[in-house]
Computed example of a mutant assay.
Amino acid sequence: MIHYQDVGMKYGENTILEHIDLEIDAGEFFVLVGPSGSGKTTLLRMLNQLTLPTQGDIYLNNKKIKEYDKQKLRLNTGYVLQDSSLFPNLTLEDNITIQLEQLGVTKEKRRARAAELLKAVELDPEVFAKRKPAELSGGQKQRVAIVRALATKPDLVLMDESFSALDPVLRRQSQDLILDLHQKLKPTIVFVTHDMQEALRLGDRIAVIHAGHLQQVGTPMQIMQHPANEFVKDFFDPECPHFWNLEYLLQTAYPTKIADTKNAVELESFDDLLTQLQKTPELRFTYQAQTYQLTYQGLLAYLAEQGGRR
């Protein structure tokens, strides 16, 4: 769906990005991660023409992004910033459907869409539709910002440090929400973060950016198991070497003990577990005469939690 081809970016004499070659598949939750100033937000902003590369091209559905009509491109692309960026003078209903209004959708259909989306994030439209953003908590504002980005049913949603201003509890709730919405609606999401824990938890695949250069692209487990270089290793390196141990994992809440041994595979090591879970989203396995059940998402949550303990 998206192809960066030898993309570079310079501001005067300053090189922001250099020789980026990258592909993002349709329906993928793709995370760009790296330290502040690495160039990841610039890469994201190129996808809706907020920034144009000074070298190379970016293709969206086999067409150069610079050849798209800017207004149409943005109206059909969801965008969620670090702060909610809701319009303070508009109701939540009107905030959510502002792009639909620009696309000429009738008021009746806009109201119905706003109600549908508010329900999706557990905000009762009877209570919240006519409220203004100032009447919401920070977490509620971000929920509205997320569904506003989904109002036109876009194929592409861009998220730039969207949860970094939230406290840890709200941040995890927002992560759960976007994972659930992605699973249900299947848009392509490109998500920028400087937090490797968040990257591990959210990404189907992750691109690691440092000093304007692409360091590695892979699944969370590929990057954790096989870092491409010392930077990636150090960036994702937890100070908890024990967490790659199967017995340590089994002491946490992530695997569930079960009695049913049907279709369970016998494991001997953590590497065996990784190999099996990359083949199936949910695994039944036996270890030392006990049977467990673990999902791929559960393992990623475990890795993210352990990786965040620095």
Rank of each mutant, 00 (worst) to 15 (best):
G8A: 10
G8W: 05
K10T: 10
K10V: 02
I16F: 05
E18F: 02
F30Y: 10
K40N: 01
M46D: 07
N48F: 09
N48Y: 13
L50D: 00
D57E: 09
D57I: 00
Y59L: 10
L60V: 05
N61K: 14
R74A: 08
G78F: 07
Y79R: 02
Q82K: 12
D83K: 08
T91I: 02
L92T: 00
L100A: 08
L103S: 06
T106M: 10
E108T: 15
A115C: 06
V121H: 02
E122Y: 14
L123V: 02
E126Y: 06
V127D: 11
F128R: 10
F128Q: 07
R131F: 14
L136R: 01
S137F: 06
Q140L: 06
A145S: 14
I146C: 03
D155E: 15
D160P: 14
E161Q: 00
S164Y: 03
D180C: 08
Q183E: 08
T188A: 13
F191R: 01
R201T: 01
G203V: 04
R205V: 14
V208Q: 13
A211F: 02
A211H: 11
Q215H: 04
M221W: 12
P227D: 09
F231I: 07
D237G: 13
C240T: 14
N245M: 11
Y248V: 09
A253E: 13
I258C: 08
D260C: 11
D260V: 11
T261P: 10
N263C: 05
E266Y: 14
S269I: 03
Q278M: 15
T286M: 13
Y287Q: 13
Q288C: 12
A289L: 14
L300C: 15
Y302S: 04
Y302A: 04
L303D: 02
L303S: 11
G308P: 01
